[in-house]
């Protein structure tokens, strides 16, 4: 695996008088969280591999405001949103791919009313499109025949009815795709959404991520595939709770594709 990745910021594109095909919205987790940064790099490896001209905002990106909005802080949300919309509109951005379902949902559904209209897709949708169009050829590699369960992120699944794109990508890797008892529209939250990621849970009998990890582990999978950096954190912790991290890995779909194909 070649360790270098190629990334240009929007500012660099503009300086050289070029326009990218698509903007990659990295998100806070993908930018700062050590585990999620690996997912970000995997997404970039795919983009590099198919030679898509993409840009990031770099230091000009700011939180979409999703956690503020879900937590009821509409002021802070709209401040963040309008700041980002100003940046995006100044660069005349038309199409955005996000590495996080929360960014995806917020920009796609909640920015238009505040003046930000873009075509927004999630990275699993982009990868599926690339495979469908024949631009990305994939094989199972180390995952061939392995048992994989996919955990639906709430903000990709129920919130936006995207259930098949991530599954199609996984299936293209020649694996044994298993479903948990609660999946797709009935999928169970990992416990992070609604700003719970940033606070202690209320008093109860169990953590939500433990409940969900238990359900995933009941399928005895080699990999729990996720499509959200927050789900990744929650499921990883859940698997550790059951001391199963040797046996079951938690990987983003982008990482699966990259690892299987040595991108």
């Amino acid at each position: 695996m070649n360790d270098t990745i190629h990334v240009k910021t929007m500012a660099e594109f503009t300086a050289s008088g070029e326009t990218p095909e698509i903007l990659f919205w990295v998100g806070c987790s993908g930018s700062f969280d050590d585990r999620a940064k690996k997912i970000t790099r995997a997404i970039v490896r795919i983009l590099n591999h198919v030679n898509i001209k993409f840009a990031i905002l770099g230091m000009e990106e700011s939180c979409t405001g999703d956690p503020a909005k879900r937590a009821g802080n509409e002021f802070l949300f709209q401040m963040q949103a309008m700041q980002n919309i100003t940046t995006l509109n100044n660069y005349n951005i038309k199409k955005i791919v996000t590495g996080c379902p929360h960014c995806f949902n917020t920009i796609k559904n909640e920015y238009p009313q505040l003046g930000g209209q873009y075509e927004v897709i999630h990275h699993t949708q982009l990868v599926q499109e690339l495979i469908n169009e024949g631009k990305l050829k994939v094989q199972g590699g180390e995952f061939k025949g392995k048992k994989i369960v996919y955990h639906d992120p709430c903000y990709l699944g129920r919130a936006n009815d995207v259930y098949e794109a991530p599954r199609d990508v996984i299936k293209s890797l020649d694996v044994d795709l298993a479903e948990m008892k609660r999946s797709k529209a009935k999928g169970l939250c990992c416990g992070a959404g609604g700003a719970q990621m940033f606070k202690e849970a209320e008093k109860g009998t169990k953590e939500v991520n433990v409940e969900r990890a238990e359900e995933a582990l009941a399928e005895n999978p080699d990999v729990i595939a996720v499509a959200c950096p927050f789900c990744n954190t929650m499921m990883t912790d859940g698997v550790k709770h059951f001391n199963k991290e040797e046996h079951t890995k938690v990987l983003d779909i982008a990482e699966l594709v990259v690892k299987a194909n040595n991108l």
């Binding site: 990334v7 930018s31 700062f32 790099r41 230091m59 939180c63 937590a71 802070l76 401040m79 940033f198």
Partner: peptide
Amino acid sequence: ELNGMFSNMENNGAPWQFSPADRANW
């Protein structure tokens, strides 16, 4: 904790205490 998250977002543009300058370190 949520108030903390709000002030991080206000000051650093992220829900955690990271400097915006480090956003593209990855």
